[in-house]
């Protein structure tokens, strides 16, 4: 299935490609953050397009919390090998040594240590001056005001009051040593656009997005998949085989599944059209209060 050259998807694609080329041309050491999710898959696909016939002129970085679904890791390794890309996997070893897990430390602290701190460590270690992220403006309120080139101070903080005006498609790529830019090529895509594009371009995604019978525990109103033996059950909890899929992917103990029988891309898109909850609903970390994403971003979260 090919996309009409004048359609909104083609316009979004061209805009993303343009952003990626600007970053590659203007920065000395960019990196693409890869989270293995559907948005990352689209971003990677766009990067393959943007620099064709060259490979993307930057490495791919995965900040591994050690709690990703096993299927995600398998998918990651397979796709990197098939595309022939350089991948850096970074784990916050201090966090691991301190025994920080989503079960023992609560989702907020765990996410801060294993994701935010892990990301900062990796950016510092390799001295990246720009990092692509797959965030979209439609995901969450504080993201709606995010720039496409988002400036971060030398200690990776985001100051919402002090963002650079961004006009036309003239992106200001100038930073001092230690400062960096987070670049968001998918800013103007919506969740539906992402699915339609995956369908149109037949982009590979992690099978967890498709409905299948999976071992599920109900916890805190969410459907959590028991992905390995580290998940310990409470006395009243029991594992059931349920037909579910995931709308968003992250660390398995923090990612809720939805009951669904959508096992193909068209079925997923169809389900999207009647969906009544946003995809981040499935993530525990956003729930605490409505300003929580803004707080995390200020601290350096993507």
């Amino acid at each position: 299935m090919s996309v009409d050259q004048h359609s909104h998807l083609k316009r979004l694609e061209a805009e993303s490609i343009r952003i990626m080329r600007e970053v590659a041309a203007e920065f000395s050491n960019p990196v693409m953050l890869y989270s293995i999710g559907k948005d990352s898959s689209v971003m990677l696909h766009l990067a393959m397009k943007a620099f064709y016939p060259s490979k993307p002129p930057f490495p791919v970085l995965h900040v591994d919390t050690t709690w990703k679904f096993r299927e995600m890791i398998a998918f990651r390794d397979d796709i990197m090998q098939r595309l022939g890309l350089d991948m850096i996997v970074h784990v916050n070893q201090e966090g691991v040594a301190a025994g920080v897990t989503p079960f023992t430390h609560g989702s907020n602290y765990y996410t801060h240590v294993m994701k935010t701190e892990g990301l900062k460590q990796a950016l510092d270690k390799y001295g990246f001056d720009a990092a692509f992220g797959g965030a979209r403006r439609d995901e969450e309120k504080s993201r709606a005001k995010e720039r496409i080139f988002s400036f971060r101070s030398a200690n990776h903080t985001w100051d919402p009051k002090n963002q650079r005006p961004e006009l036309w498609q003239l992106y200001n790529a100038r930073v001092h040593k230690g400062e960096s830019i987070r670049a968001f090529p998918l800013s103007n895509w919506t969740e539906l656009d992402i699915w339609q594009y995956i369908l149109a371009e037949n982009i590979q995604i992690v099978p967890l997005y498709f409905a299948k019978r999976r071992p599920i525990v109900e916890r805190g109103g969410m459907l959590i998949m028991v992905d390995d033996e580290r998940m310990q059950l409470q006395p009243q909890e029991k594992v059931e085989e349920r037909l579910v899929r995931f709308r968003t992917l992250g660390c398995y103990p923090l990612t809720g599944a939805v009951e669904s029988s959508a096992a193909t891309l068209p079925e997923i898109v169809r389900e999207m059209l009647i969906a009544r909850t946003s995809e981040r609903q499935g993530r525990l970390i956003d729930h605490d209060e409505s300003g929580s994403m803004e707080k995390k971003k200020k601290e350096g979260y993507f």
Partner: peptide, 8 residues
């Protein structure tokens, strides 16, 4: 890896 077929 096989993409789930675009079917039905």
């Amino acid at each position: 890896m096989n993409q789930v077929p675009v079917a039905r």
